[in-house]
């Protein structure tokens, strides 16, 4: 459980970013009031594969609602990060 100025969000990854991250789900500890952009920056910083930069143009859904890089996250939010190539 998050205490004080720290919050925890659960993140699920979908699509072409999964092989870059080698995982489909992760919990992140963020400062209270953090945005999706800050979450994305942390993911990029912690990922060895530079291809992860494409996560910046992914789609985001928070608690079943559409979101964007400016969306402010809250404790226990469920975040989906979706990136597709649009193939057949």
């Amino acid at each position: 459980m998050a205490l004080g100025l720290v919050m925890i969000v659960n993140v699920k990854f979908f699509g072409s970013i999964v092989p870059l991250l080698h995982k489909e789900e992760q919990e992140f500890e963020l400062a209270e009031g953090a945005t999706i952009k800050q979450l994305v920056d942390i993911i990029i910083y912690n990922t060895h594969d530079q291809g992860i930069q494409l996560i910046k143009s992914a789609s985001f859904i928070v608690n079943k609602e559409s979101a964007n890089l400016e969306t402010i996250l809250k404790d226990k939010d469920n975040v989906l990060i979706l990136y597709t190539l649009g193939g057949g």
Partner: peptide, 20 residues
Amino acid sequence: PGYKGMSTYGTGGDTGACAL
């Protein structure tokens, strides 16, 4: 970066993301 995803999982790797 899209190459790795397509090579590993094919077009079906995006099905879940596209559904959402």
